[in-house]
Design a protein around this nucleic acid. Structure first.
Length: 672
DNA sequence: TTCTCTTTAAACATTC
DNA sequence: CGAATGTTTAAAGAGA
């Protein structure tokens, strides 16, 4: 499988470039400050405290942050960003952060694609929360300090408030700058703490200063904040559900500390999800090795953002007790971790819910003419970003993305000769499972016909099922061989190549399977489907049983979903190639009856109807719908009779009675 | 491992 | 006659 990075690179870029901006945008409107009523106290009550005090306070905050930062220095990726520097750092930090984010994104793009869509939003929220929390926390400390100093100073000397004047203004400015700087520091620290994606560092920057003024109770902060403040902000991103780029950013970064991420370790396959976890040296969670500690693994401390190497458990314990003792920082980190877990749980619940909905949809929903064009909801804000999201949405990441890949990486639609050749010559990697299903083919096809029509990807259906599909799509349920050919080429880009091969296969299947009945016509022969026979060769009905789920995953998702996902990708990255129904006018409409029929086929009065009507050979009657031989002179509705009459004329069909005629042994089992 | 299904390839016959 | 259409056999891969 040539999951050549180049192929996905295009997609990657699309996604990659978006996140940073998006984050900024999304973060900007945050209304976090709303939750702290007392926030305005500081600036509005400028008279309350002398400018020096304010200044001092800020310095204090800065110191605290600095201190923490230094403590975390090892965990940070770019020490250059640390503290110091006044305004310079304010500018410098965002830039470097952006760079960092990009660096981190690129290798993990595929992960992001597959990672839970809303993770990003959640983590984003979490980040902001943490940032704010830290802010509040520091402020709280500052408050105390401030009070102390205030009392001291007031006791010592009374400074006239009027004297402040311009001086205070300048101080205010300085103060703001310092606050900004402080934010940066906090951001950096936060990165070190939770190893969260720094890409959003610049987001909270501007807004936090105001928010941080209020010394609120931290625990309350967690609760209250996450509820009113954040959701509103994130809604733009979150409601879309699939914030691919963002998701990756946060998700991946979450999985791995801000260290050097394996550059090309994993293939940029759409189903990179498994890769994420496997390739991660982190193995994030806790692998409970015998005498191990949940926070100790792979010889290093797994405390969020720590990664300190420890020879053995004893050393680690030592490290744990010294570096991660019960102090403010640790508790804060612990809270953050709690938040992380909480958010992930929420995320899990959401994804589970989505999965349920998907299953329900895929199982019983007849068909959807335009899967890709029916976005869950158009995102007002982000443009290209939302596009990716939308297009990919019908095929949630949460789903198991089968490692099929080989036959279908991110297929550039109509891949250039070489790529496609190697791609498909790859071999007869069958995915026949779909055929076993009752027949998701129609619905699946209906959903993805656009994709198959344009993408040179082998459809995950057997020839038999495809032929049947082709025949059933027609109003009179019959096709000449050539028409079947045409249907194949029309519906699948894949079958526009190697015609000799697959045509031979089609013919072979037509002849081989009893379910395909050749009906002689005046102008030639047409092929019809003996639905009964077709159903006969299938396993028991799938009706929402566990096996169905299994089938769904193994079969449908295996090829179709993956393909669909790719289609989404392809569409997003090659909009031009995603020609709508142009190529195949009416295809959508055709598919509808199909899917319906698909569902209804078994239940239709096949046996009784067919058996009764046809005296000698009920072979045609099997079709619920009257078979009308196309070339028939007059399209008389009564053609059914002629159609039947025609059958005998066909020597092959008539020849071996036991061959096609299975009426007697099939009373009507498929009816139910 | 065996069996079944599917695909692919190919030979051959028949029809257009 | 050549191409298209059908039929049949065989081999091989994949999955149950």
């Amino acid at each position: 499988n040539q999951g050549q990075p180049s192929g996905s690179r295009g997609v990657l870029h699309l996604v990659t470039s978006a996140p940073p901006h998006t984050h900024h945008v999304c973060q900007a409107p945050r209304d976090g400050p709303g939750r702290d009523p007392a926030g305005g106290g500081a600036d509005s009550n400028g008279e309350v405290s002398p400018a020096e005090l304010l200044h001092f306070q800020q310095q204090q905050a800065l110191q605290v942050a600095r201190q923490f930062l230094l403590q975390q220095a090892s965990g940070l990726n770019s020490p250059s960003n640390n503290d110091s520097k006044q305004s310079a750092s304010a500018v410098q930090v965002p830039v470097s952060v952006a760079m960092m984010s990009q660096q981190m994104l690129s290798p993990q793009q595929m992960q992001q694609i597959l990672s839970p869509p809303q993770l990003q939003a959640l983590l984003q929220q979490q980040q902001a929360l943490m940032l704010q929390q830290l802010q509040e926390y520091y402020k709280k400390q500052q408050e105390q300090l401030h009070l102390q100093l205030l009392t001291q100073q007031q006791a010592g000397k009374q400074q006239p408030k009027e004297a402040l004047g311009n001086k205070q203004l300048a101080f205010q400015q300085l103060l703001q700058m310092q606050q900004l700087q402080q934010q940066h520091l906090l951001n950096l620290q936060r990165q070190g703490l939770v190893s969260l994606q720094p890409s959003q560092a610049s987001g909270p920057l501007q807004t936090l200063p105001q928010a941080a003024v209020c010394p609120t109770d931290l625990p309350q902060l967690w609760k209250g904040e996450s509820a009113p403040g954040q959701p509103a902000e994130d809604s733009s991103v979150r409601q879309e559900g699939l914030d691919l780029a963002g998701t990756t950013a946060t998700a991946t970064s979450f999985a791995s500390p801000p260290k050097v991420s394996p550059p090309l370790s994993h293939h940029p396959l759409p189903n990179g999800q498994p890769t994420v976890f496997t390739s991660r040296r982190d193995s994030s969670s806790h692998e409970e090795t015998p005498g191990s500690h949940p926070l100790y693994g792979h010889g290093e401390c797994k405390w969020p953002g720590c990664e300190t190497l420890c020879e053995d458990l004893g050393q680690f314990i030592k490290h744990l007790n010294t570096e991660h003792a019960l102090d403010d920082r640790s508790t804060a980190q612990c809270r953050v971790q709690m938040q992380v877990v909480q958010q992930l749980e929420i995320q899990l619940a959401k994804e589970s819910e989505r999965l349920q909905a998907m299953m329900a949809h895929l199982h019983m929903r007849p068909s959807e003419p335009k899967p890709f064009s029916q976005p869950l909801n158009p995102v007002p804000g982000s443009s290209s970003f939302s596009k990716v999201t939308v297009s990919a949405d019908p095929f949630p990441d949460g789903l198991v993305h089968p490692p099929t890949s080989a036959a279908a990486p991110v297929t550039p639609l109509r891949p250039p000769g070489l790529g496609s050749a190697s791609l498909h010559s790859g071999g007869p990697t069958r995915r026949r499972s779909t055929d076993k299903l009752c027949s998701p083919i129609s619905s699946e096809l209906a959903q993805n016909h656009e994709f198959y029509k344009n993408a040179d990807v082998r459809p995950p259906f057997t020839y038999a099922s495809l032929i049947r599909q082709a025949i059933l799509e027609t109003p009179d349920r019959q096709l000449t061989l050539n028409e079947i050919y045409n249907w194949f080429t029309r519906m699948f880009a894949y079958f526009r190549r190697n015609t000799a091969t697959w045509k031979n296969a089609v013919r072979h299947n037509l002849s081989l399977h009893k379910c395909f009945v050749r009906v002689e016509n005046v102008k030639g022969a047409v092929w019809t489907v003996d639905e009964r026979e077709y159903q006969k060769r299938r396993p028991p009905k799938m009706t929402g049983s566990p096996t169905l789920v299994k089938n769904m995953i193994s079969g449908l998702s295996y090829g179709a979903l993956n393909a669909s996902y790719q289609a989404a990708l392809a569409e997003s990255s090659f909009p031009l190639l995603s020609s709508p129904a142009m190529l195949n006018p009416g295809s959508a409409s055709n598919l509808l009856p199909l899917s319906q029929d698909d569902v209804g086929a078994p239940g239709e009065p096949l046996p009784s109807n067919g058996g009764s009507s046809s005296p000698p050979r009920p072979s045609p009657p099997q079709y619920s719908h009257p078979i009308q031989v196309k070339e028939e002179p007059t399209e008389a509705e009564e053609d059914r009779r002629p159609g039947l009459a025609l059958v005998p004329t066909n020597p092959s069909a008539v020849g071996p009675p036991e061959d096609r005629d299975l009426e007697e042994e099939l009373p009507g089992e498929e009816l139910s």
